[in-house]
């Protein structure tokens, strides 16, 4: 069986969604952002809602998300995406509105916007990439940086006494009645990617019910920030991030698990 007999259009079982542009991703090799972008757009593609989806990009590594996501998007000031999305969802109730944010954006400067959007139960999806570091600015400590984890602003490791504990934002928002679906996923293996995509699909489907926010955290690697190769970073993530940020659904259909 010659390769050329296999590689035929009719035999194709997987390729990039057309809801991702052809602009090369600006992310570092092996970064979870790329995977998260793609499964989000694959969900929107499969639901056939490109015309009714409006995305809100943050400030951080994914500030340029609108260069890659082939939908209407607006770029929010650092931390303010949930507020921006709130207004879009309120003035366009039939649209599918989502924010895509990093840990600095969502859990540091944007804490109030995150908590209050969740508390109001806005009809939006929040996709939250947690890689425990500020990537865009070169690897500083983030609210989710683990204890003892080195960064350019915690060069001797995060010291709980002076820098506080890593923030479990997802568990926090799960306590708010306004959140309907809260889950934590990952995208470093094919199994995890499939689950994460299913969760994102669930989140977007929930928008039809208008019963509150769907909050999907994706724990991801940051190869340049953690100063590791992608596969080493993924292993380190499993050994260190997952114990503190356990994967799985935290709240489904408005009920805590």
């Amino acid at each position: 069986m010659e390769l050329l007999d296999i590689i035929k259009p009719e035999n194709q079982v997987f390729c990039k969604t057309k809801l991702m542009t052809d602009t090369p991703l600006s992310y570092c090799p092996g970064c979870g952002h790329g995977t998260a972008h793609n499964i989000t757009m694959e969900v929107i593609d499969e639901m056939g809602i490109q015309e009714d989806t409006i995305g809100v990009a943050p400030v951080g590594c994914s500030v340029l998300a609108y260069d890659f996501m082939n939908i209407d998007m607006t770029q929010a000031a650092h931390g303010r995406a949930p507020a921006v999305a709130t207004a879009i969802a309120r003035t366009w109730p039939k649209k599918y509105v989502f924010t895509y944010q990093g840990d600095g954006d969502l859990a540091a400067i944007g804490t109030a916007e995150t908590i209050h959007a969740c508390n109001r139960g806005e009809n939006i999806v929040i996709i939250f990439i947690n890689n425990g570091i500020y990537g865009m600015t070169g690897g500083q400590m983030a609210p989710t940086t683990l204890e003892g984890m080195k960064s350019s602003t915690s060069p001797f490791g995060r010291d709980i006494k002076t820098m506080g504990s890593p923030l479990k934002m997802t568990e926090l928002v799960a306590q708010l009645p306004g959140t309907y679906f809260v889950t934590r996923q990952a995208v470093h293996t094919h199994k995890h990617v499939r689950k994460a995509k299913k969760a994102i699909r669930q989140a977007f489907e929930n928008l039809k019910l208008n019963k509150g926010i769907s909050f999907v955290e994706i724990v991801s690697n940051c190869n340049s920030g953690w100063k590791m190769t992608p596969n080493d970073a993924n292993e380190w993530m499993v050994d260190n991030m997952f114990p503190y940020y356990p994967l799985g659904d935290i709240k489904v259909n408005g009920k805590l698990k």
Binding site: M1, D5, I6, I7, K8, N11, Q12, V13, F14, C15, K16, T17, M20, P24, L25, Y27, P29, G30, C31, G32, H33, G34, T35, N38, I39, V187, H188, T189, H190, V193, R194
Partner: peptide, 13 residues
């Protein structure tokens, strides 16, 4: 599906 840049297309027969 794990490739962040979707550089891989897959064929099966």
């Amino acid at each position: 599906i794990v490739c962040p840049d979707r550089a891989i297309s897959v064929y099966r027969v």
